[in-house]
Write a protein that binds this DNA or RNA. Structure first.
Length: 95
DNA sequence: GACATGACCGCAC
DNA sequence: AGTGCGGCCATGT
């Protein structure tokens, strides 16, 4: 997760698979929910499938996530981000 | 061991 | 486009 570049996003399922956790998307979610508030990990770049934001707008964390994503230049439409444009895969990291 | 829950995923209707 | 259902992995009671 720390390797996700700024302005890019990934889904829980992808992150789980890429981390060698198989299909443990739920486990990723539960883990993120337990992150300390002062973590510097880019947790806001982890979205649900299809670029959907699973954290509801209005909640502290939900607003925080939207703010951070927008700050990185992403556009949020109807609680979702354009994965086609901002999706990230490790292969792209190698150039 | 059984049962319920979670910042989930994919498919079918 | 919205809803329902089963599957997934780990944790807590």
């Amino acid at each position: 997760m720390a390797q996700i570049p700024e302005g890019k996003v990934i889904s829980y399922g992808e992150l789980a698979a890429l981390s060698g956790l198989g299909r443990a998307a739920r486990w990723v979610g539960r883990t993120l929910s337990q992150l300390p508030q002062d973590t510097r990990l880019p947790w806001h770049r982890v979205l649900a499938a299809g670029g959907r934001l699973s954290l509801a707008a209005g909640t502290p964390s939900g607003e925080e996530q939207r703010a951070r994503l927008r700050a990185e230049g992403l556009t949020i439409r109807n609680d979702r981000v354009d994965m086609r444009r901002h999706g990230w895969r490790p292969m792209e990291a190698n150039g």
